[in-house]
Design a protein around this nucleic acid. Structure first.
Lengths: 197, 197
DNA sequence: AGGTAACCATACCGGTTAGTATACTGTCAG
DNA sequence: CTGACAGTATACTAACCGGTATGGTTACCT
């Protein structure tokens, strides 16, 4: 079952929170390599000293940025499902695509995890497990929702819907197709319809 | 109709060719921001002077890298189709996913265009039109193949298959699912089956 | 013979990179 | 009272960034 733990930034000091907020915004909008620690410290209204006292390294800060982003994204989806489609079934599965569309209305630079993965080449980077975990969470979410909706076996259908989900994200941002999520929903409906038939 | 023009690097001088070769490999494997012009020149066994004499700027070199990558990818797909599924029909549509899988056997860092898009934030960057064009080419390819296979209307089905295509690329690399293309093929088969029914 | 394109080598420019060092101020708890 | 913690401010390192400048050497073309 998808689970969302406590907020990553909950135990941070005020300056630490400002740093993580500034870094998150800058990393997502301008990329990781393009944003230096000096800019992060200046934007947060503090100093590099405090940044390294709190987070130890830029890589750790990057990992924390993605960890908190994953938590917020997951909480957003679960909240959307609870509000709009609380009962198991086909409608609840399709509501994930609505949640993705609503999420992307606030973020126009695509998937922060895919983007981070593009910039990280070091196999030991602490952000890599976070990225993998987020992708796994989406797969598990679809698989579980499909299972709860009564489809059997659920795993293959969950994997198919995950492809559509990721493809829609790329098509909308990189491909420049504003209505990519309409296509995704129609695709998902067809796949679910077929599996039910 | 998908078209592939002459090789981008055809008119380059020997040193220019070495520079573009080195830059292409480095940009794809390590990312754009992480690779400096000094490293490119050293790897190519030449100097920065020659790099700027030939290409004018790093941005222009990036655009050329993506342009040539798009040409090679497109030629690879069309060649694969001509060899393995020369006749219009369902098999020819599905063969694109085989081509994608074969292509990705050589490249383990995902879609170079999605990765480049993640690093480029300047709206005036000369590489952006190249990225858009590549994504558009894939969409046109699927739409045309579906049309030639007799599906009507072809456009919606082409868009659906494009989502599956992009999603499989992300799932295989970022998601760490080695068999993502098996899922993509089964998904595509279902969608085509459904549209034919 | 003279021009030109291609190339190599080196040095330089101002600015930025991640990360560390030093020194000082405030607050709060034992 | 004292030590620990959070913070600010500034300076510093050594390396790297994209881009430019200077100067010289081939080779080919007219």
């Amino acid at each position: 079952m998808p689970n969302v733990s406590d907020d990553v930034g909950a135990r941070l000091t005020p300056a630490g929170r400002r740093l993580l907020d500034a870094a998150s915004d800058l990393f997502y909008r301008r990329g990781i390599h393009a944003v230096g620690v000096d800019l992060i410290a200046d934007t947060a209204g503090t100093t590099k000293k405090t940044l390294y006292d709190r987070f130890g390294s830029k890589d750790a800060l990057v990992a924390l940025y993605l960890q908190r982003r994953a938590q917020r994204w997951q909480a957003f989806v679960l909240d959307h499902l609870a509000r709009n489609a609380p009962e198991p079934g086909l409608k609840r599965v399709l509501a994930v695509f609505d949640a993705l569309e609503a999420w992307m209305d606030h973020y126009d630079r695509g998937c922060g995890f895919v983007n981070a993965h593009a910039e990280i080449t070091d196999a030991d980077h602490p952000a890599l497990p976070v990225i993998r975990a987020e992708k796994h969470w989406v797969l598990d979410l679809y698989t579980q929702l499909v299972d709860e909706a009564g489809f059997e076996p659920a795993a293959p259908l969950g994997r198919q819907l995950t492809l559509v989900h990721e493809g829609a994200t790329v098509a909308r941002t990189v491909g420049g197709q504003p209505d990519a999520l309409d296509v995704a929903r129609s695709t998902a409906r067809t796949l679910l319809d077929r599996a039910a038939g």
